[in-house]
Computed example of a mutant assay.
Amino acid sequence: MADKQKVYPRGSIAMGNGVLMTVTNVSVDLNNNAKQVHTLRSEADGIFFGPQETTISFNFVVNEEGLERDFIGMLQKKQVKQLRIKVPGKTITTNGAVRSVRIEFAVDNEIGGTVEFIGKTEET
């Protein structure tokens, strides 16, 4: 039975024409803003679905060549971009914009940061 091991592949994140190579961690949050509806006569009578929202956060590192993409410029210019999150059997395509960029560095660590991206996810 030892030879019956599953392989767990890595996912990827792409922006525009190419895969982001310096990303170290990705988080995708899809939210349909559903809420429970109650009436005077009946608790938990139904569900209301609000507008769908998507937030994608990812961490990155910076090598000696600089930032892989100009995330700060995208934020300042309010540019609309497309992100594609790829996992086996599914691609999540989101059109949106960079909401925030955080850069961090310390004396004993590489330069890195976090990007928060918000937008609308296409039907999959």
Rank of each mutant, 00 (worst) to 15 (best):
Q5G: 09
K6Q: 12
K6G: 14
K6D: 15
K6Y: 14
V7G: 07
V7N: 11
P9L: 04
R10M: 14
G11R: 01
G11K: 04
I13H: 04
G16V: 06
G16K: 06
V19F: 02
L20N: 06
T22D: 09
T22I: 02
V23F: 00
T24S: 14
N25C: 09
V26D: 00
D29A: 05
L30Q: 03
L30K: 03
N31G: 08
N31I: 09
N32I: 05
N32F: 05
N32R: 02
N33W: 05
N33L: 06
A34E: 15
K35S: 13
K35W: 11
Q36I: 14
V37G: 02
V37I: 15
H38S: 07
T39M: 00
T39E: 03
L40Y: 09
R41L: 05
S42N: 06
E43D: 10
E43K: 13
A44Q: 14
A44L: 05
A44R: 13
D45A: 12
D45R: 07
D45Y: 06
F49S: 12
G50D: 09
P51F: 13
P51Y: 12
Q52C: 01
Q52H: 04
E53S: 10
S57Q: 13
F58M: 13
F60D: 00
V62W: 03
V62S: 04
N63K: 07
N63G: 08
F71N: 00
I72R: 13
I72N: 07
G73S: 12
M74R: 09
L75C: 12
K78G: 08
Q79V: 05
V80G: 06
V80F: 07
V80T: 10
K81F: 10
Q82T: 15
Q82H: 12
R84T: 15
I85G: 00
V87L: 14
G89V: 01
T91Y: 07
I92H: 00
I92A: 01
I92E: 00
T93R: 08
T93M: 04
T93K: 13
T94I: 14
T94C: 10
N95G: 02
R99I: 01
S100I: 06
V101W: 08
R102L: 10
I103C: 04
E104S: 11
E104N: 12
F105Y: 12
A106S: 15
V107Y: 06
D108T: 14
I111Q: 04
I111R: 11
